[in-house]
Nucleic acid binder design. Structure first.
Lengths: 247, 247
DNA sequence: CGATGGCTTGAGGGTATTCAAGTGACGTGG
DNA sequence: CCACGTCACTTGAATACCCTCAAGCCATCG
């Protein structure tokens, strides 16, 4: 190690990856040798907004972990319409289930806010799952949780109206204990609208409605919720869970 | 064995269960001793229409297999509204993922057409998953498939209109190769409507619309599709898959 | 023959969408 | 420094879509 490196230690990409992985539950049950393999074979990439990581039907050669930024998971119809399945941020893994699905992605992934993304060859995941039952179990739990979230998504989209979906979304951004909150919307409103299954116009109108009827205050991207209880009463009657709910 | 038993062999419940399980993929990778345990601890029940098997939040002590009839999987909101997540029939397993979800069901299950249902203690499933990696892998694939189906469900509910959802449903009943087809709806139309997330009235009207605009002909429970291509053009533009699609 | 249940049809209403126009913030170039 | 274009967002009017409530149809069954 040179004198310079002592002062400014040069971190290899592998070391960076190791650090990042250590904080993510998804990788916790993997064997050490597999983690080493991920370090060697993994890539870290800065990806600008608008970049499409992969499309529906692409060969699923890699799976991904978001370190920073935002990624939308979507499906596009032949008619050109798009259904947003989810919007993910730091700590989320995606493309991981494709190893069970004929090795092709079942959805597309696009960066919607400048991101740093790690990617790894899918076969490492596949081998680890087949050889390490502890990881297989944790993977099972991971997918099971995703499953549950999708059930809830289906529920929300079918029984909540637009304003309630927005309320639910805002509540999830709130800390549990507080009685009031000030939020900053991290992404464009039109994107939130799409994530909640509505048009930007409807989003705008419904937000105004929430302002009148649920005691919130909007100023550009900043939203102040003066009384969380009031918003809960407005929103959560159209849901099977009560706030605070986990997902 | 008596002479009578030779002619009319008396089948024990355990033997019945064994026969049924043998035909279901979900159980295929289980070890023989676990299958024996399921035979001993399993129950077969005839359940009348309207009976609620379990509710959201109930302790998840058992998981289920439908041998005959129909079961709807639903979530109920605090306001009393209900979202139908799925409608299942013979061969489907439900309540199986609860072993990963704090041991409580995340949804309710109600019989909507007189059914014969097998049930088994959840701990057998839990143990088998923990001890047999082959089964754990097949379970993983099973849940992964459900996950994919839910993604598609979210897509279809957000981009297809009622008539297209019906068209999609009809196409799935068609043989791939044919250019025309005659179908018999095996179930009550109101049941199909529920499965597709619409009211019976909307189902009826949309079916009439398909008749006008997509070249199909309806006579009671019999539906004739003269030109599958025409129906595909009408329906599949609002989907990310093209006919023939698998699920 | 009347009752029932599944299905259809009609009228009316609510919610979200589309199309269109307008506002306001921001950055660029004159 | 201001004019201008761009882009996100908002607002308005008309429309589409699906829902509810209600009545009517028709086959089945006691």
């Amino acid at each position: 190690m040179t004198a310079l490196e002592k002062i400014l230690p040069i971190e290899t990409e592998g070391q960076k990856i190791a650090k990042i992985l250590a904080a993510i539950v998804f990788f916790a049950a993997m064997r050490p040798q597999t983690k080493n393999l991920l370090q060697r074979e993994g890539r870290i990439q800065s990806v600008p907004k608008g970049h499409i990581i992969f499309m529906n039907e692409d060969d699923a050669a890699r799976f991904y972990l978001i370190q920073r930024g935002w990624v939308k998971i979507f499906r596009e119809t032949l008619g050109g319409e798009e259904a947003i399945l989810d919007v993910l941020t730091a700590g989320s893994v995606f493309g991981e289930t494709s190893i069970f699905e004929n090795k092709a992605y079942a959805y597309g992934a696009e960066v919607i806010e400048d991101a740093v993304i790690l990617s790894f060859p899918s076969h490492i995941l596949e081998n680890e799952t087949a050889e390490n039952i502890d990881f297989a179990l944790s993977f099972l739990q991971h997918i099971s949780r995703k499953n549950l979230a999708k059930d809830k998504e289906i529920e929300l989209r079918s029984v909540q109206n637009a304003a309630q979906r927005i309320g639910c979304f805002l509540l999830r951004l709130c800390k549990t204990e507080q009685r009031s909150a000030t939020l900053h919307l991290a992404w464009e409103k039109s994107l939130i609208a799409a994530r909640l299954g509505m048009t930007p116009e409807t989003f705008s109108r419904s937000l105004a409605k929430l302002q009148k009827e649920a005691g919130i205050h909007i100023k550009g991207p900043t939203i102040t919720i003066s009384d969380i209880g009031m918003l809960v009463r407005y929103t959560c009657t159209a849901c099977s869970n009560v706030f605070p709910c986990d997902n």
